[in-house]
Design a protein around this nucleic acid. Structure first.
Length: 467
RNA sequence: GGCGAGGUAGCAAAGUGGUAAUGCACUGGUCUGCAAAACCGGUAUGCGCGGGUUCAAUUCCCGCCCUCGCCUCCA
């Protein structure tokens, strides 16, 4: 598999460093409210990546953290009158529910920042010992950016070209030696309330960047295969992680960087003030399914901004319907039951007739190209002409590709229960039609429409459909 | 100002040094009493603008315009 690497800005092949398992770290959510669909674009794309790697025959070790201590979680838990722990547990549960609805594979490890404070303190101690960090007057500990010469390699800043402006004067951080330095440990403040921990430098809490470095070291080691997140994390978050980790372990840290572009809404940035910041629940309340949302989120290449609109959601519904119909026709021929399990797909191990789509997918995760190839292959296939064996193998191949994309096909609509009144009208219409009384038949059809129903006729029977 | 991503049909979105996938929408046909559904077709002489290189550029180079993101804790 070929994947673009942010650090080298080239497409590079992925091979597990240990020759067996691809070790992946993804920056997870800060649990202080519902994740929005922009957040989920990143997680969904990471999920497609993981599935593609695994279906391609390489097992993964997927670690994604939960950030459950920072300014916002502390502030909003207090506002809600809850302890930090119960507040973040609630939002973590909500996040998990959304992940499941969106068909995201669960990470193998999902560590929380609060549960790894000692690991973070240990990392700071190493950085202090090696002279990469210093304690400021207020008890905070900062990383000395000037002591790490490779700083800026990921975001391609030769030096930190800090734009001078009012935003730079954060009163909390007046004690830093240099503007570029960032907090490893934040000294306790009154507004933190009970949310502080003991450390060799006094009471306080860890800085944001540190948790990822500490948990990566714990679960993936000093060097691992791939680190991922939204493009906004390139700087400063990932840059800072590199600095902390490399200076404390002497290792090289991530060998590949995978960043996902942002989701836009109506051509612009999502924001609460514009009222265009949607959560999964918002869209479900409008009648869309998580499967449709997922389809939209993968429908653009991950390195290009994706514009989200309700029109694209509507097209996703139709596109999924088209895939479902093809799948159903193969299944009917083959006589199979439900969709194969993910593990069955891994054993299957081949995209078969969808090899073109698979090739696109494994070339820098070209999902839109792959989807196009799937539709193209479907179009050229007359499923009624397949024999049972062909139908069976194509059915499995189709599920293999859809399994990599994590696409869930809509269930066939169960026949709706029509009220007796509607059934009676439909019977009358059918009788009129059988006696070729078209005027009467059309009249009954109009009356059905007025009640919100229509019919689909075949030669021998009709079916009632709600409008 | 620095760094980065992007500008392709009504909408969305791939792609390529040799003449533009795919989905939605629209539209023609088959089917139907007419429809619906389904199926089969059609729809960009054109890929932000202007130059250049080349036998040939949407694809490479240069300049310009526009959109979006990051520039200290936003996926």
């Amino acid at each position: 598999m070929l994947l673009h690497d942010t650090l080298t800005r080239t497409d590079r092949p992925l091979h597990p460093l240990d020759g067996k398992t691809l070790r992946i770290y993804c920056c997870g959510p800060t649990v202080y409210g519902p994740a929005h669909i922009g957040n989920f674009r990143t997680f969904v794309v990471q999920d497609v990546f993981r599935r593609t790697v695994e279906l391609g025959g390489t097992p993964t070790l997927h670690v994604r953290n939960i950030t459950d201590v920072d300014d916002k979680t502390i502030r909003d838990s207090q506002k809600a009158g809850q302890t930090l722990g119960s507040f973040t547990a609630e939002w973590t549960a909500k996040f998990h529910a959304d992940c499941e609805a969106l068909n995201l594979l669960r990470p193998h490890v999902e560590p929380s920042a609060v549960a790894h404070i000692p690991h973070q303190i240990a990392m700071i101690e190493k950085l202090m010992a090696s002279g990469h960090a210093y304690k400021a007057e207020d008890g905070s500990v900062y990383f000395k950016v000037g002591a790490f010469h490779e700083y800026g390699a990921l975001s391609h800043l030769e030096k930190r070209e800090i734009r001078l402006g009012a935003a730079q004067t954060d009163s909390d951080e007046y004690s830093k030696e240099s503007m570029a330095d960032f907090a490893l440990w934040k000294a306790r403040k009154d507004e933190d309330g009970v949310n502080f921990w003991a450390s060799p430098w006094g009471e306080g809490r860890p800085g944001w960047h540190l948790e990822c470095s500490a948990m990566i070291l714990e679960y993936l080691g000093t060097e691992f295969d791939l680190h991922s997140g939204g493009v906004d994390l390139i700087f400063p978050h990932h840059e800072n992680e590199i600095a902390q980790s490399c200076c404390s372990t002497g290792g090289k840290f991530a060998s590949h960087w995978f960043h996902i572009a942002h989701l836009m809404v109506d051509g612009g940035k999502m924001s609460k003030s514009l009222g265009n910041l949607f959560t999964l629940a918002d869209l479900q309340a409008k009648g869309y399914t998580a499967a449709e949302v997922r389809y939209v989120l993968i429908s653009g290449h991950y390195r290009a901004p994706l514009n989200f609109t309700f029109h694209t959601l509507d097209s996703a519904r139709q596109a999924l319907q088209k895939l479902a119909k093809h799948e159903a026709s193969l299944r009917a021929k083959y006589g199979a039951g439900g969709a194969p399990k993910y593990d069955d797909l891994i054993r299957h191990g081949s995209a078969g007739v969808f090899a073109d789509a698979w090739a696109l997918l494994t070339n820098d995760l070209n999902v839109p190209g792959a989807l196009g190839a799937v539709f193209g292959a479907i179009k050229d296939a007359d499923s009624t002409a397949f024999d049972v064996e062909t139908a069976k193998s194509r059915w499995m191949d189709l599920h293999f590709v859809l399994g990599a994309l994590g696409v869930i096909l809509p269930e066939a609509q169960p026949d709706a229960e029509a009220p007796a009144e509607v059934v009676a009208l439909a019977e009358q219409r059918w009788a009129a039609k059988q006696s070729k009384d078209w005027a009467a038949a059309d009249k009954f059809r109009d009356e059905l429409a007025a009640l919100g129903w229509t019919t689909k006729d075949s030669k021998t029977e009709y079916k009632l459909i709600p409008l």
